[in-house]
């Protein structure tokens, strides 16, 4: 068996007394798209932040393409430059134009020349319908456009793995589709992705596998049809029932 794209073993993470992740085991194969569902506060964001080494972990290992990235002495900057993350709140740099947002990482972290970084950015912006926005400032874009720029910013690093943290939760309903469309396209192209989401129909549509995170552990995982049609765990059933009641499935 070839090495998996990402392997998480026995991951524990606490904030003070609050134990948020209580032993996470999760593997992603190359080109696999995994959706992470679970109630608000169940630890989805924390898990993604741990994978990107934005949060120090308390126990366990995270292995990326065979390399233990949680070992002592790893170059965290280099690891991060190979993992893209897109946040719920976009977190674009407001003092930079769209083009500068997208080229910052390639230029400073990957040390690409200006021409090469600009070429890469222009190509990606064009592909995602943002060509005419490259000189705009983030504040002047719609939420959907901002989030697409944030995705492009992550992609410009050519990451091994893309982490998406509820990328549509801060958007007006009519803007959700344009962002999901981008993610769908990336899935088709074979991008390895771990996606925390509340968009159940999207998860069902795009994911190869769905994981239900509850009280700091992955309580249940399986093919989308199995999780959504025939969840085994009572907690999963309750969670999905609440989603259905809220009219979101």
């Amino acid at each position: 068996m070839s090495t998996s794209a990402l392997a998480i073993e026995g991951l524990h993470k606490s904030f003070g007394k609050l134990e948020v992740l209580r032993g996470i085991d999760l593997e992603l194969a190359e080109h696999e798209v995994v959706c992470l569902i679970g109630a608000s506060g169940s630890g989805k964001s924390t898990l993604l932040r741990c994978i990107n080494l934005l949060e120090p972990i308390d126990a366990g290992r995270i292995v990326l393409h065979g390399d233990d990235i949680t070992a002592a002495r790893v170059n965290v900057d280099r690891v991060r430059s190979g993992i893209g993350i897109v946040f719920q709140a976009f977190n674009l740099f407001p003092h930079m134009s769209v083009l500068e947002n997208v080229t910052l990482g390639p230029r400073k972290a990957l040390r690409l020349g200006k021409a090469e970084a600009t070429g890469r950015a222009t190509e990606l912006l064009g592909r995602f319908g943002l060509a005419d926005k490259r000189d705009e400032y983030p504040d002047r874009l719609s939420g959907g456009q901002q989030q697409r720029v944030a995705i492009v910013r992550a992609l410009a690093m050519r990451p091994w793995l893309l982490l998406l943290d509820e990328v549509t939760s801060a958007l007006d309903p009519e803007l959700v589709a344009e962002v999901l469309e981008v993610v769908r396209e990336l899935a088709t192209e074979g991008m390895t992705m771990l996606i925390a989401t509340h968009e159940m129909s999207f998860a069902r549509d795009v994911a190869h596998r769905v994981c239900f995170l509850d009280a700091g552990v992955i309580l249940e995982q399986g093919a989308p049809d199995q999780i959504f049609e025939a969840p085994r765990e009572p907690r999963t059933q309750q969670f999905l029932q609440r989603i259905v009641d809220a009219g979101r499935l």
Binding site: N52, D77, L92, F93, L104, A109, A154
Partner: peptide, 9 residues
């Protein structure tokens, strides 16, 4: 966090 996630020091 956004800057560090891009691999900036």
């Amino acid at each position: 966090a956004a800057a560090r996630s891009l691999g900036l020091s």
